[in-house]
Amino acid sequence: MTDGARKQGIALSERQRIAWLRLIRSDNVGPVTFRDLINHFGSAETALTMLPELSRRGGAARAIRVASMADAERELEVARRHGAAFVGIGEPDYPPLLRQIYGAPPLLAVMGNRAVAAAPAVGIVGARNASVSGMKFAGLIARGVGRAGYATVSGLARGIDTAAHRASLDTGTIAAMAGGLDCPYPPENADLLREIADGQGLAVSEMPFGWEPRARDFPRRNRLIAGMALGLVVVEAATRSGSLITARNAADFGRLVFAVPGSPLDPRSEGTNGLLKEGATIVTGAEDVLEALRPLAEPDLFVAARTGADEPDDGPPPLAALPPSEDERARVVDALNLVPTDIDDIIRHTGIAAPTVYLVLLELDLAGRLHRHAGGAVSRAPD
């Protein structure tokens, strides 16, 4: 990967970066909502001025909180003190494969060697209560793919994640975090995080600085791991584990899923053996991974998309220029229930133009009355 290829993209201005940070930190604005707002209003600054009106039209019970300029500037300053920065989805240092997934974070907090993000990567995940042999094998895989020019991606957790990170400190590793970059979990991996950031590695998070990770934050972390990697290796995993959630994410994103077989008597192998039954590629050494990924590791996959700095790509149709009528809004609301529904089905059912349907959904989302699901489906939020 040449530096010239990696450096494609358009950098945000400082003013744009502050506006993006304010928008993504405002109430009810997630990655998909962020994209829809930018597509409709053309810039984060304009979208910020419209949030209260859109939320009111969606039936919000209270005024929406819009992140202030002071809040954003404070977070940027905290990032600088930690040697970190925020990278936008259209910028050169944003992980190129992550950009391709549905609902990719518009801004990532990054700390460390940003060049690592441009390398092809292999995700390695597994049990926190890993066996000694499982951790040893994870290290062998990490060293093997590292020598072949791949970075590793994992979640900084105990067990398999820790073994994978430590084995690839010299060749490049990416730690995806569930909390802020200043809040590593588990806390005993704070030294490992510093080794990663100070060496040939990178730490990334979509959460604010100071954010202590909660259980519901780890699925977002798992999406980052799956989204940044060409393939995912699961070394040990129980039948109900975050590693299997990461594997499902990887499959949904079109990534290759690998699993290490284990004893049927070990609960830590139930998940990996199950993945093999479902069609995952068996792994008995790093060469298995490298051979399967070789046809995919083409340079063009790792060239940053040429998108405008304030125009995330792959969005829905442009939103309606005029506010929806009360009748149109009521028909869209009536078409929703608690079951996830494809937006195309809502458009066909109501007969309302797609831009108007998207705008109604955006209003409902900002009012806290809509849930978004994987693949773009939506449902009504419970009363």
Rank of each mutant, 00 (worst) to 15 (best):
A247Y: 14
R248M: 12
R214E: 06
G199D: 05
R255Y: 09
L232H: 06
I245S: 12
E287G: 06
L230C: 03
N249M: 15
L244N: 11
G242T: 03
L202P: 13
F218L: 11
E287P: 04
L230Q: 08
I245V: 15
A203C: 14
E206K: 12
L244I: 07
G274S: 12
P267I: 08
L265A: 14
W211C: 13
I196N: 01
W211Q: 15
G231K: 00
D266E: 14
A237E: 09
N273E: 09
D217K: 06
G271P: 10
G227F: 08
E270V: 12
V257Y: 03
K277L: 08
V204C: 09
I245A: 14
V233T: 02
G285D: 02
G271C: 09
P261S: 12
G210R: 15
V260F: 05
G199F: 08
A250S: 06
S241T: 11
N222R: 07
L202V: 14
E287W: 09
V204N: 04
D288M: 05
S263Y: 12
A203Y: 05
D288S: 06
P267H: 09
A251I: 04
A197Y: 05
G201Q: 10
P208I: 10
A251Q: 05
F258M: 02
E212K: 15
G262Q: 14
G199K: 07
G199T: 08
G227N: 07
G231R: 01
T246N: 04
V235N: 11
L230Y: 04
K277Y: 09
V233H: 01
R221C: 07
V234E: 04
I282Q: 00
E236V: 03
A215D: 09
L244T: 13
G279K: 01
W211T: 13
M228N: 10
P261Q: 13
G201R: 09
W211R: 15
L224S: 04
V283M: 02
P267C: 08
R255S: 10
R268K: 15
A251W: 04
L202W: 14
L256S: 02
G254R: 14
D266A: 15
D198C: 02
T239I: 14
I245R: 14
L275N: 13
T272S: 07
D198T: 07
A280K: 00
G242W: 01
V260K: 05
I225C: 03
A251D: 08
G262R: 13
A215S: 14
A197L: 10
A226F: 00
F218E: 10
A250K: 01
R220L: 15
G231E: 00
T246C: 04
G271E: 03
T272H: 07
E270P: 02
A226T: 01
L202F: 14
M207C: 07
R223P: 06
E278K: 08
L230P: 00
N222Q: 08
G201S: 15
T246R: 02
R240N: 13
G227H: 10
S263M: 12
A247H: 14
F218R: 14
E236P: 00
P261V: 09
A229K: 01
K277W: 06
D217Y: 03
E206I: 07
L230W: 03
D288V: 01
R240D: 08
G285S: 10
T272K: 07
S241Y: 06
I225W: 02
S205Q: 11
G242R: 03
D198R: 11
L224T: 05
Q200I: 03
I196E: 01
R216H: 11
G210L: 13
M207S: 13
S205C: 13
D198Y: 02
P213W: 12
G242L: 01
G285F: 01
L232F: 09
